[in-house]
Simulated assay, not measured.
Amino acid sequence: MATYESLIKINGSVGDLVFYSLNGKNVVRKKSGFNKTAFKKSPTYEKVRQNSSEFGHCSKAGKMIRSCIENYIKETGEPLLYQRFAKLMTAIKDFDAVSEKGKRTVHNGLLTERGMTFLKEFKFGNKKNFSSDFFVFEEKEDMVLNVADNLPADEIVIITIHPDLEIYSAEYFEDQLLVKQDAEIRFRRHFQDAGLLLCFLVLRSKGETTHMGFIEIKKPAD
């Protein structure tokens, strides 16, 4: 970009130059080589289109899932957590081995063991996440939370999420339970045969959140 002085003010393009006014100065620059039509159709931009499509999908998927647990994310005090979560969605999407490049999805990635492991291992700020001893298993009417021995909490929050990652919407239910040591922890099974379900768990002790993260939902054996 350069400025110029002339008795005649030019606005518009001449050849490969574009003239316009910026902050009271006459400015000239060369036209960009970017062409929207070529970007949409040219084989040269195929990889760029694929990456752009998947990036947009992962960004929307991450934002939708975060919206279901937003109140608890705020407790982490990590302003850039959304960026790490978007990178997580991208990593999970890479485990989709059934879709062609450019159409890989977070949904298919989460259906894989490695994709679910990545989700469970994600750390929310300085809050501890959960060992493999923590998981939920489904019964006919209820869900049962399996926890490690000597649960370090007096209150549990469980958010069950049924995401639709095609239209970027979700249904979710939040259960707040008081912990009774040596007692089985049960809560209502909100979704029947819902396909992909996510479970977000929060542990509190004396009003302070100590743990948060996703845990696995195990379905009953056929």
Rank of each mutant, 00 (worst) to 15 (best):
K218Y: 07
D94A: 15
P152N: 07
A91Y: 11
K74M: 11
G207N: 09
F200H: 07
I158V: 13
G77E: 02
A153V: 01
V98I: 15
F191M: 09
I156M: 03
K219T: 11
D149A: 09
F187V: 12
I217T: 06
L201Y: 02
I159P: 00
F191Q: 08
L81A: 06
S205E: 15
K120T: 07
L111D: 02
E113L: 13
M116S: 08
F214W: 04
F122G: 01
V136P: 00
A97W: 05
E78T: 09
F214L: 04
V98D: 05
E121H: 09
S132N: 13
C199W: 01
I215V: 11
P163W: 01
L196T: 04
H211A: 09
H107F: 10
Y168L: 03
L196G: 03
E216Q: 13
L198D: 02
N146L: 06
L165E: 01
A183V: 09
K93L: 08
Q192F: 15
A97I: 14
S169F: 10
R188M: 15
D133M: 06
F124P: 01
T160H: 11
T209D: 13
V144A: 14
S131K: 12
P163Y: 01
T90R: 10
E141H: 15
D94Q: 11
K120D: 00
R204A: 07
H162Y: 09
E138C: 10
E138V: 11
Y172L: 06
G207L: 10
K101C: 08
E75F: 14
L196S: 08
F191D: 04
A194R: 06
A221V: 14
S205V: 09
D182A: 13
G115F: 01
D182K: 15
N129H: 03
F191K: 10
F137T: 11
D175M: 05
L111H: 03
V106D: 01
A153H: 03
D142W: 12
F173L: 14
D133I: 00
V136H: 03
L151A: 04
D96W: 02
P79D: 09
D149P: 03
K218G: 05
V179A: 07
G207T: 10
I217V: 10
E174Y: 07
D154G: 03
H190S: 12
